[in-house]
Amino acid sequence: MALHLKQLNIFKDGSLMLSLDATVNKGEVLSVMGPSGSGKSTLLQAIAGHLATPFSMTGKILIDNQSIDDKPPHLRGIGIMFQDALLFEHMTVEQNIIFAMPKTKRYSVSKKRESVSNMLEAVGLEGMQNRAVTTLSGGQQARISLLRSLAAEPRAVLLDEPFSKLDTALRDQIRTWTLEQLRCRGIPALLVTHDSDDAVAAGGQTFELLPC
């Protein structure tokens, strides 16, 4: 799996805001840095297919040499994560994760439950299936949020300052763990961040956006 961004130009009200040409290989992380308002979040929304007025784009987005430009967001197979966990509050932890799992004949509900239980155990949250998400701590929510994204089996993941709301100790922990998860699943990722430590930890290329 690899994510290709071919001569991507993003316009705001018709004038060029940023351009980018990059390839992110299997398991690699491309860090995107730049001042506030330079269009980092907009770039991620363009890739995920959420670009709306006043923005527009030209160029090609490919996953495994397959163009996804014409696909609606939900069929792109691109996971997106923000600095807030954005867990669905009307669902339990388990329901949040199962909601994300692809609908295939492969999994019965009991299989899905079992796999949730394994995922939770692997991140030290065993037995939390039926907790209301509002009763979790920030770090716990961040972990569930990533598990939810991974459960959808995405072909690429976009992260918009995912660690910026965590305190320093927790941030290191969650960052290490998140990057490891992405690496061992071989998922290409784009990481938007203000923190050069994040970019260093990610270990991949870094792309600097200029102020617009």
């Binding site: 009307h90 669902m91 339990t92 329901q95 995922m119 692997a122 991140v123 030290g124 949250l125 065993e126 037995g127 939390m128 039926n130 907790r131 209301a132 998400v133 009763t135 701590s137 770090g139 716990q140 972990r143 922990q173 763990w177 490891e180 998860q181 061992c184």
Partner: peptide, 19 residues
């Protein structure tokens, strides 16, 4: 969500490992 249970054993922050 209906089945809300607070399980003391797991609410405290714990180290966790990757899979």
């Amino acid at each position: 969500p209906r089945k809300v249970q607070i399980n003391n054993k797991t609410t405290s922050p714990q180290p966790f490992r990757g899979s």
